[in-house]
Amino acid sequence: MNEIIWHGRGGQGVVLASEVLAEAAYLQGYKGVTSAPTFGPERRGAPLSASTRIADEPIRIFSRIERPHIAVVLDESLFDTMDIAGTLREGGILIVNSDKPPERFIPGKTNSIRAATVDAVSIAREYRLFVGGAPVVNTPLLGALARVWNGIEMRNIERGMGFKMSPPAAYNNFQAARSAFERTLVNGGEGREE
């Protein structure tokens, strides 16, 4: 089972990103997929997360994800408030929306995780993806995820978006995700993980 956690702030679309990933994973043939928001009230701007579980067999676990395989961070200011890298499993992947190099997000003593960054804000601006005046960074990060994790293919992310958005929005968001796929920086090389 693969456990992916999406960290963002209320309004950034962590829930939608998790849902698109769940759709994409199911289309790819995984029998077990769940997507859950942080349970409880939501406030715009407050830290919140969403989680996706992906497995070959139906999911039978509903507890909170404590040690994710992959953490996707939509807002790098969240690093000031929580130890995201520290919760990752051995060999886990950290994906951050940032214009900084990925090495910056690997804590000194940890060598076992991989990090990737993508400047999703710039990409959202290029593709004119805005909600309420703020750039939409969730869908570009799906492209970054597909770049560093072998478990999901871009063509299924495209189809997954089709389930969650109107055709023009899905097209535009996918173009942004594809651009993010190309522009994601990965520490220690370009290879996708097996």
Binding site: E19, A22, Y26, K31, G32, V33, T34, S35, A36, P37, F39, P58, I59, F62
Partner: peptide, 8 residues
């Protein structure tokens, strides 16, 4: 746990 969690 079920009401808000998506699954197939």
């Amino acid at each position: 746990i079920l009401s808000h969690t998506m699954m197939p």
